[in-house]
Write a protein that binds this DNA or RNA. Structure first.
Lengths: 226, 226
DNA sequence: GACATTAGTCGCTTTATGTGACTAATATGC
DNA sequence: GCATATTAGTCACATAAAGCGACTAATGTC
């Protein structure tokens, strides 16, 4: 991925907030960039310069793939951020948030590293704002897109699904309520397999299989997923 | 409001989607701009060029005030749009949506005119997309900010409030349900005044007065308003 | 075999919402 | 004055979703 020389002031950059579930938390991908001024090593959200003629989503997809090494299961634009300085010295950051499934959370290059949201290095004001609004954007859209399902492997237990929702939402859910809502949406179908995970009763494996639709505006709202 | 000369390619523009309630519909403010190529008169969403050193919200507020002649009761960023051509020839449009109260929907200049959403002139692809997403953005945030209340005069009848919600949401609401939700949120307090509007029983006037808070995530959700 | 642990289900309660019907107070037409 | 249309405001019932605790089921550990 080519970038403009450091000296030139970017019109705008496309910044990536790549998130992945990791050990029951959310982790974000940061890139090591040495600051041209103080030569300190800093961690920043991966970004790429603007390119004439390419659409925003195309630039974002390329940037996501370059930094994470894989295609995200979902991504969307968060907005344009202009407050405070940017490591690329650009006036504007157009931010895209992307979710990467669990397995692909390994990084080849030494320049990239995953950080738990609870253990972040020092970030600039703009970077912090972009990150926070990205997490909010994910939570807001959780009712509309089957993000949690796609973050899991093809087959999964209902407890795993619930834990994924809890991780993404940042709050605990009640088992019975969760399954009731899930059942009402016919979004999931059981397989013949069961998985015994150490102690405790084995869990039945399910697969994601969108079927019927419903109306309404409540709870965890599986019914709006599509 | 100064603008860059036509020949120079803008880095990005800040585009304004100003909306106002008008005759039971939503209306959007468009600006008359003559195209430099074919010299045809075209209606476009008001925009202003980027300016170094000024924050996005400041630019947007100035652009809104310049085009509508008043401060909006609420505005927010919708996002960055880069698909298709822009009248300012800029690569990027950073879009802000703003709501203007009923009274201020009069325009001095001949260059600006309000159009019902149902009677729009021909717009480019990008303009249409920006407008549509702006309306969606307003509806999505209607549960979080007391937009409808602030669009009305200081005192209003509950029917007026309901009609404002219906106008903004684009769908009919049931009177009893609406008032029940409103009462549960203690967002409104009655005044001593009543208004007799032609035929029919006079309606009591209310004023907006935020009080208690609640939890939950349902219905029209007055309870999240702040 | 007792116990801890996780899966899965049931039923009751609480709360929110949809809906129609009812009463109240005004203006209009006769 | 009086029937009627019209708008305001309220009520009661039905439906639906969500919170919650308790129960059974199936496994591993000691």
């Amino acid at each position: 991925m080519s970038r403009e020389p450091r000296g030139k002031r970017q019109q705008y950059t496309v910044d990536v907030v790549a998130l992945t579930p990791r050990d029951g938390q959310l982790a974000v991908l940061l890139e090591r960039r040495s600051d041209s001024k103080d030569k300190l090593v800093r961690w920043v959200l991966p970004w790429t310069g603007s390119k004439a003629g390419e659409s925003l989503t195309d630039i974002a997809q390329a940037a996501i793939k370059h930094s994470t090494g894989a295609a995200p299961i979902w991504s969307t634009q968060v907005g344009a951020f202009g407050d405070g300085p940017h490591p690329g010295e650009a006036e504007l950051s157009i931010v895209y948030v992307a979710l990467v499934p669990m397995g692909h959370a390994t990084v080849q290059s030494d320049d990239f590293q995953w950080f738990f949201l609870s253990e972040l290095p020092a970030l600039t004001e703009r970077q912090t704002q972009m990150l926070e609004e990205s997490v909010v954007a994910v939570r807001d859209r959780l009712d509309l897109y089957p993000v949690a399902f796609k973050l899991l492997p093809a087959t999964f237990t209902l407890s795993e699904l619930q834990h994924m929702y809890e991780l993404l939402l940042g709050r605990r859910l009640h088992k019975a309520s969760f399954r009731r809502a899930l059942a009402a949406a016919t979004l999931v179908e059981p397989t013949d397999e069961w998985r015994s995970e150490g102690r405790g009763r084995p869990a039945q494996l399910y697969r994601f299989g969108p079927k019927k639709r419903r109306r309404g505006r409540r709870g965890v709202r599986f019914d709006l997923l599509g």
